[in-house]
Simulated assay, not measured.
Amino acid sequence: MDEKAVAREMYHLMFLFRRQADNPDDHIHEGRTCRHGASLRISHRDMMFLNGIRQLHEGELVKMSELSSSFRITPAAISQVVRHLEHEGLVERVVLESDRRSVYVRITELASEIIGKQEAKINQNMIELLHYLGEEDAEALLRIMRKCVVFVNQKHEQ
């Protein structure tokens, strides 16, 4: 096996796969307007953050510092993302009377609705992919993806 050739092909295939997912014209159009009156367009990155916020504490309040740690990005970067999502009316910042030093975030009802619709679309796409692959290839793909996640986690721990 020519490892360099295999690595190049893997990189190229991942590039092609990601390019399809990151198409700038492939924003989620919700058909609503955000707080500042413009049409609401949500990027895949925004959806990942919203879903991550929701999953951290099952929709309850999440500290900004927890988001930074969970997403492995700086507090300044988290603040910028939250500011953007807040501007779109998708998250709210909350300061508790009992903990005035910490800033918390929660997703809005609008964001919850949008996430639910996107999850339904994603689930349908995954079901179609599983049918396309067939049971044996789908199980092989899952096994390989799990192994990849373990590898990446080990690399981050080094």
Rank of each mutant, 00 (worst) to 15 (best):
I42Y: 06
A76D: 05
S70W: 12
L50W: 04
V82H: 07
I42W: 08
Q80D: 11
H87K: 15
L85F: 09
L40G: 01
D99R: 10
I53N: 02
D99N: 10
R93T: 10
D46S: 13
Y104N: 06
R32Y: 03
K63T: 01
H87R: 15
T108R: 08
H27E: 15
L96R: 14
T33N: 10
E86H: 15
E92V: 07
L90S: 02
V81S: 06
V62Q: 07
E66F: 11
G37C: 07
F71A: 01
G52I: 13
V62D: 02
M64P: 00
H27M: 15
S43G: 10
I107W: 05
V94H: 02
E113C: 07
R45P: 00
G31W: 08
D99H: 07
E30A: 14
S69F: 10
L40A: 03
S79V: 01
G52S: 09
M48P: 00
R32M: 02
T74D: 12
R101K: 13
P24S: 06
D26F: 14
E109Y: 14
F71C: 01
V95D: 01
S65I: 06
E92W: 03
H87Y: 15
A111D: 00
R54L: 12
T108F: 14
D26P: 00
S68F: 05
A76V: 10
S69C: 06
I107V: 11
V105A: 05
S112V: 02
L85I: 06
E97Q: 12
S79H: 06
I73Y: 09
S43V: 09
D25L: 15
S112Q: 14
S69W: 07
H27P: 06
S69I: 06
P24N: 05
E60Y: 08
E109H: 15
R106G: 00
M47E: 01
I107M: 04
C34S: 12
V95L: 10
S69M: 09
R93W: 08
H84S: 10
R72K: 14
Y104V: 06
M64A: 04
I28Q: 05
E92P: 00
H29K: 12
R100C: 00
S70G: 02
L96S: 05
P75N: 11
D99G: 02
I107T: 09
S112Y: 05
I42N: 02
V62E: 03
R45K: 14
G59F: 12
Y104E: 05
F71M: 08
L67E: 03
Q80G: 08
G31K: 09
H84M: 08
R83W: 07
L85E: 05
N51W: 05
E92D: 11
A38W: 09
D46R: 14
E113V: 09
R106L: 03
M47Q: 07
E66W: 13
T33Q: 12
S70Q: 11
S69D: 07
